[in-house]
């Protein structure tokens, strides 16, 4: 088993954190995992993305051109990664900020108003976690419970007060996948 996930958005949308959360959950479940960010002279509002590879054997390349699934949090990410997802793969689209639809019929696409859901939950910054809930449910890479345990175990101390909200965000995202 090997899954490659690209999570992409604006800096500040939490693409990197969502990827780390997934990586922690995979590690805790005993998988090999790599997390690699795009990096450069960038800032809030610039582009931010990471690639997570989860495998039951030692991971060779930590980077892929064609991921098995992707989360796109904004329009430029949709343009870059909607064509890249492997046939049979999963694409999770933050439809609050991405109006266009995928024209592909060889992948499963889930449109979530993630930013609206996050705002409704009380914190706009949860859109990344909403999308992660959907991706985890849609791909079945890991049980959603594993991601919740990883949150509990690895969420930095200063964000502990947001634990319950993050769990709700995961559930709301997962509920969008039917």
């Amino acid at each position: 088993m090997q899954e490659e996930i690209i999570i992409s958005g604006f800096g500040g949308q939490g693409a990197l954190f969502a990827g780390q959360l997934l990586a922690y959950a995979a590690m805790d479940q005993g998988y090999h995992v790599t997390w690699i960010p795009s990096y450069g002279p960038e800032m809030r509002g610039g582009k931010a993305r990471c690639t997570v590879v989860i495998s039951d054997e030692e991971i060779g390349s930590p980077l892929v051109r064609r991921p098995s699934s992707a989360i796109v949090l904004n329009i430029p990410s949709m343009e870059a990664f909607e064509p890249a997802v492997k046939p049979g793969g999963v694409l999770v689209v933050n439809s609050s900020l991405v109006p266009q639809k995928s024209e592909r019929d060889d992948i499963r696409v889930f449109y979530l108003p993630a930013t609206d859901i996050a705002t409704e939950l009380g914190n706009v910054r949860l859109a990344n976690v909403v999308c992660l809930g959907a991706l985890v449910r849609a791909t079945g890479i890991l049980p959603l419970e594993a991601v919740k345990q990883a949150l509990d175990k690895h969420l930095p101390e200063r964000y502990r007060t947001l634990l319950a909200l993050n769990n709700q965000a995961l559930d709301r995202g997962a509920a969008c996948v039917r």
């Binding site: 780390q20 990586a23 590690m27 090999h32 995992v33 790599t34 997390w35 690699i36 960010p37 990096y39 930590p62 980077l63």
Partner: peptide
């Protein structure tokens, strides 16, 4: 190289 420096692994 930059990839080893920036990536996270267990």
């Amino acid at each position: 190289d930059g990839a080893i420096g920036q990536m996270m692994e267990p």
